[in-house]
Each structure stands twice: as C-alpha cells, then as structure tokens.
C-alpha cells in the first residue's frame, strides 16, 4: 500500500516536473527510423540501425555550448526470464538458486551524445530507466528484502546479455549533423530477438530531462528456416507426424538403395 502511494506520488511529481519543463522549453523533438522492420534470415550477422531526429526551436546559445544531450535506445520485447546459478552439490555442479524477472527487455542498445554520467544525475536516469544498470527488470521479490535490480542474479542477467551483445551502450554514437538534425547509430547483435522493439529517444538540456519520443520497430524471422519454425510452433502435432513420416521414408529408402538381404 505504502509502495503504491509512493509510486503514485512519484508519477504526480514526474508529471508536474514534465509540465514545468514543457512550459519553459519551446524545443520540439521528433525521430524517424531508417526502416520500420528488420528481417532476420539464416545468415543475419547483426545490423546497423540509423535513427534520425530533429530538434527545433532550440536555444542557439545552449546548442553551441553543447548543452543539449540526446540518448537513443532500442528496447527489445520485454519477456519473463529465469536466471539460475550452479552450485556444487556432492561433487556435481547443479542448478541451485534462481530468480525470475518478469519484464527484462530481451535486448537493449543505447547510443548517446556523451557518457551517461555526464548527461544527467543518476537519480534521473534511474527514474527514467535509462542505461543497462537502470533497466527495469521486473524483479519479483517481496519489497524490502533486497535492493531490487541490484542482486547477483540481476547482475548476472546484465553481464550474460552484455557478453552476447544483447545489452550494449555506446557513447558518442549520437551526433548533430546540423544545428537541428541529429543522427544516432545503433549496432544490433546477430542474436536480435524477434518481436516488437521500441526505439526511444530522450532529450536533455543541461542535465534536465525535457521530453521523450518513441517509434516501434518490428523484427521478424524470414526465409525457409523461419517457415519451419513457425509451422512447428503453430502445428506441433502435424509437424511431429511429418517428422515421423520423413524418418520412415528415409529408413525405407535406405533399405531400397542398399538392398542386401
């Protein structure tokens, strides 16, 4: 109950802060993706996604001083995940402890104008959930027992996904190509998850969060392999029967081809 009240308060405070910023800031901000869908074929080895954006009505003085910062992220579909830890039991390495995360993004690529800690205070970034360390993983623990998002399992989740290239942060990958136009480049990994991704861009002015824009991006599998994959998920029973029929036919054909009874 208390957590809820606090959350509500936070939302109200954020809204108020947002309105205050809006009132003071005439800047407008839009983004566009170089593509609205990505097809993953069997030889997909990662891709570069370019996100363009415009920043209008900016204060020219602040702009020249480099007072505007932009963070662009591409968030993969949020899916529940279980992280397990192996432990030695009777000489064998066995999965012992585990932790569930309800809403961990399956991938997260971030590009920013500068290092995150130079853009804004950690409190603001944490509130907005920006940065690998501030991702909202949907940690399912009784409140008060541990600091959420900071335990060993959350750390392992971030590290493992980081090693696979699924979670990645690049600084200086957002650049102004003209005073009102910027360009962000995100390197997407070969193991890019399928589903609806969300490209989000955040505008900061001298450490203060101004506004956010987002655009969806669809990632789909394509090709023969995908057709088999989809079929096996949608028609498991028929797929199983076909697998059996194929095996019987191959066995029978082998018998015919090499008859030696």
């Amino acid at each position: 109950m208390r957590a809820m009240a606090f959350g509500l308060l936070l939302v109200v405070a954020l809204l108020a802060a947002g309105r205050a910023a809006l009132a003071q800031s005439p800047e407008t901000f839009e983004i566009g993706l170089s593509t609205d869908s990505i097809s993953i074929t069997s030889d997909f080895a990662g891709e570069r996604l370019v996100i363009f954006g415009s920043l209008d009505n900016a204060d020219q003085k602040i702009l020249r001083q480099g007072g505007y910062d932009i963070i662009v992220v591409l968030e993969g579909p949020r899916r529940p995940a279980v992280v397990r830890e192996k432990d030695r039991v009777l000489g064998l390495w066995i999965n012992r402890g585990s932790e569930s995360f309800e809403t961990a993004p399956s991938s997260y690529a971030l590009a920013s104008t500068r290092a995150l800690r130079d853009i804004s205070g950690s409190g603001i970034l944490e509130q907005l959930g920006i940065g690998i360390d501030n991702l909202r993983l949907g940690f399912n623990r009784v409140p008060g027992t541990a600091s959420p998002n900071r335990d060993q399992y959350a750390a392992a989740l971030r590290r493992l996904r980081g090693e696979e290239g699924l979670y990645r942060e690049t600084t200086a990958a957002v650049q102004f190509v003209s005073p009102s136009l910027f360009r962000a480049e995100l390197a997407l990994p070969a193991a890019l998850p399928v589903g609806q991704h969300l490209a989000r861009a955040f505008l900061f002015r001298r450490g203060e969060f101004l506004r956010e824009r987002s655009e969806p991006l669809w990632v789909r599998k394509a090709g023969f392999e995908n057709w088999i994959f989809e079929f096996s998920k949608d028609n498991g029973f028929v797929y199983g029967i076909l697998a059996v029929a194929l095996a019987i036919f191959t066995g029978w054909f082998g018998r015919l081809a090499f008859k030696r009874d």
Binding site: P80, V83, K86, W93
Partner: peptide
Amino acid sequence: LVVYPGELYSISLP
C-alpha cells in the same frame, strides 16, 4: 558434471 563449469549463471524462459 564434476569439472568447474566456468560460467555459473544461465538464463532461460520460465
């Protein structure tokens, strides 16, 4: 099963 696995953590779907 007996040798130290190197990576102790793994991620899976529920």
